[in-house]
Design a protein around this nucleic acid. Structure first.
Lengths: 235, 235
DNA sequence: CGGTTGTTTGAACTGATTCAATCTGTGTGG
DNA sequence: CCACACAGATTGAATCAGTTCAAACAACCG
């Protein structure tokens, strides 16, 4: 389980601010996998930080299908804002989430203005990831999309696939919902990546047999993830 | 040409803060259409506000193609952040842009904390648009994507297509770069929309002949644009 | 064991791409 | 005013990547 205080410290907050934010009045909520947590249209009056597991923001497309538009790994947060959120939130894998309230956050920001800056930077980091996802869904073919998601996920989970396999947290349907495909095709892409000797699978474990090739297929350039790299290593 | 002070006032800043921000030391830069303005990898140490015309953020996909990941209409800005931007900036149509510097912005924020909040809200608005674009490229078919871009563009330009045609600011290639298609197909989609009597074209002018149908095809639900609606009406 | 969720495979189909050619509108210089 | 250049729009034909539908298979769990 992630130590939020440690995580905040590592991403640059001062000790006092980090402690204040980590100790803000909050609930520790368990969100079961595939269980809806917040519906589209919910009030954005909460601060959330993921302590373990994996959260996804999703939007329905009107005709029954859905698109996952963002992920939150341990150490990452969902920040408050005005009005209603057009997206829903659910867990990819069972998650422990710290949930605080804007009313408690605002005075904290008044006391520690650096927290405002911290949130602003977090928003920008998430924005960069969103841009990369747009390139993924808009311009890359099926293989590249899946490969890219694997590369990004390994990085954001701080798994070094050179030395250890990555436990893939997604079902193929979820990968389809992220990369804008069908689960059938995701399955075929996985089979093809394995056939080419780029990855090897054992259940949910994914071994990077040829990481350079995986990144080449993906067109993966991790610069867009550069900030806050130390963010999310659980202890 | 947009009055930045007026625009900032309308989006909720106090008179003093709006005036300070509008009068920050800056250059007024003219960016010609299709001329690159900032290359991928540029320093993100500038505040920009579009006063007229249209800017685009784009990312190359590694294999020669590119994806436009965000647009900035008059009244909208490109905000500073740490490090290098993985995206480039260029004009869709010739733009007048106010360009200020972070060094001048930081003391201003210290004096007017509401500006920090304002920037944070702007970032969230842009994030919502990015999410909707992900649904567009990830889940909607070719017709819906183009229809959705038309609906969003009309709204963000404050054009009421019920009463007046919208001057389409994009080339078909640019629409392709936004919606993740080829220009050939965008052309066919336009022809089909026109054949169905949903729109009518005269040069760059687009008439909404059946707006309800256009929005239905698009799956367009403008809630994600709700904040700052008065932002970008030039005077 | 039965139920549920997720993965895998096949066959037919289709929406969009690719490549190439042609057409149109606009601006420029002579 | 015309000739030319150039960017963008349009059209056709062939191809293909990914979808759809359907069924079977595997893994997990109370």
């Amino acid at each position: 389980m992630l130590d939020l205080f440690e995580s905040l410290r590592r991403s640059g907050l001062s000790e006092k601010a980090a402690r204040a934010l980590a100790n803000i009045p909050h609930k520790d909520v368990r969100v079961d996998a595939r269980r809806p947590f917040r519906e589209p249209g919910h009030e954005r009056n909460e601060v959330m930080f993921v302590r373990s597991g994996l959260l996804a923001k999703y939007k329905p497309d009107g005709s029954g299908r859905r698109q996952i538009v963002a992920l939150r790994f341990p150490g990452e947060g969902i920040l408050p804002s005005a009005g209603l959120a057009p997206y829903g939130i659910q867990a990819i894998s069972t998650a422990q989430v710290m949930v605080g309230n804007v009313e408690d956050l605002d005075p904290l920001i008044d006391e520690y203005p650096e927290v405002a800056r911290f949130f602003y930077d977090l928003a920008h980091r998430q924005q960069e990831i969103g841009y990369e996802w747009l390139v993924n869904t808009g311009r890359r073919d099926s293989m590249s999309r899946v490969a890219h998601l694997l590369c990004e996920t390994a990085k954001r989970m701080n798994v070094d696939m050179k030395s250890e396999p990555m436990v893939n947290p997604f079902t193929q349907q979820q990968i389809a919902d992220i990369t804008g495909q069908t689960s059938v095709n995701v399955n075929r892409v996985f089979a093809e990546l394995e056939r080419q000797g780029v990855i090897r699978r054992e259940g949910r474990k994914v071994f990077g047999e040829d990481l350079d090739e995986l990144q080449r297929i993906a067109g993966f350039h991790p610069e867009y993830l550069s900030r806050f790299q130390a963010l999310n290593r659980a202890h």
